[in-house]
């Protein structure tokens, strides 16, 4: 059984159909990268997986359980799914330690002392142990995004979603974030990414999903997909991002 099962999902914003029958399975430990032009529905699909958007048709199952915004244990579910956003979304009024430990303290029943140790642990994993007492505002974009990843790691997620996490970064800061994500991939984390980083998609992902006009247009292992795109849409997309 796949960890994430997406079956024939439809989603509309007003009259605009953004997802038109998307189906996709992601197995435990798999790293799936979703690529496509803007407006193809990539980010919306990602947001549907942890019920930030409600779907109009089809179903999404994670660990066999159907996901929707009204599910009774939505919060427990979200605690096990980490999502990292394009704009970091750190809490500006909390220092790095509090950003990382707020949710574990409020939901996980851990104490202050354990929280500090937890923060040190996850910040070490993203290479920012020395920034534990800094304010988000004092960090570079790349550092903020690594704190955002650490904030997810503190919840010990089973699944990580990345929504264009390097798109808002200066080019020289992209590498440090991708390195952290590569390390997570090596440790066996199940990851679904929406990204424009084709190098990362090629080198780290097990599978590439090309979305076009609200549908999964083409999918396959990176080497094959990039070398032999079957559809003209993917061909022209690959040409445009090279």
């Amino acid at each position: 059984m796949a960890l994430v099962e997406i079956r024939d999902v439809y989603k509309k914003f007003g009259h605009v159909e953004v997802l038109k029958g998307v189906s996709l399975d992601v197995a435990e430990g798999e790293i799936v990268t979703i690529i496509g032009r803007s407006g193809s529905g990539k980010s919306t699909l990602l947001r549907c997986i942890n019920a930030l958007e409600t779907i109009e048709g089809g179903e999404i199952r994670v660990e066999g359980r159907q996901i929707h915004a009204k599910m009774p244990d939505l919060r427990q579910f979200r605690q096990r799914v980490g999502i990292v956003f394009q704009a970091f979304n750190l809490f500006p009024h909390l220092n790095v330690e509090r950003n990382v430990t707020l949710a574990p303290l409020l939901t996980g029943g851990i104490g202050k002392a354990e929280a500090r140790a937890l923060a040190e642990d996850v910040l070490t994993r993203v290479g920012l142990a020395d920034k534990i007492d800094a304010w988000p505002e004092q960090l570079s974009g790349g550092q903020q995004q690594r704190v955002a990843i650490a904030r997810c790691l503190a919840m010990k997620p089973h699944l990580m979603l990345f929504d264009e996490v390097t798109s808002a970064l200066d080019p020289e800061l992209v590498g440090e974030v991708l390195k952290v994500m590569e390390a997570m991939a090596r440790q066996g984390m199940t990851m679904i990414l929406v990204t424009h980083e084709m190098g990362f998609a090629r080198n780290v992902a097990n599978r590439i999903v090309f979305m076009h006009q609200g549908r999964v247009w083409e999918e396959g292992p990176p080497a094959e997909l990039f070398a032999h795109p079957k559809t003209p849409e993917l061909k022209s997309f690959i040409a445009s991002v090279k």
Partner: peptide, 15 residues
């Protein structure tokens, strides 16, 4: 987006 970030961490509406 701040509210969403909190919701995604599994916090309650009040939290």
């Amino acid at each position: 987006s701040q509210i969403e970030a909190g919701q995604c961490l599994g916090l309650t509406g009040w939290q």
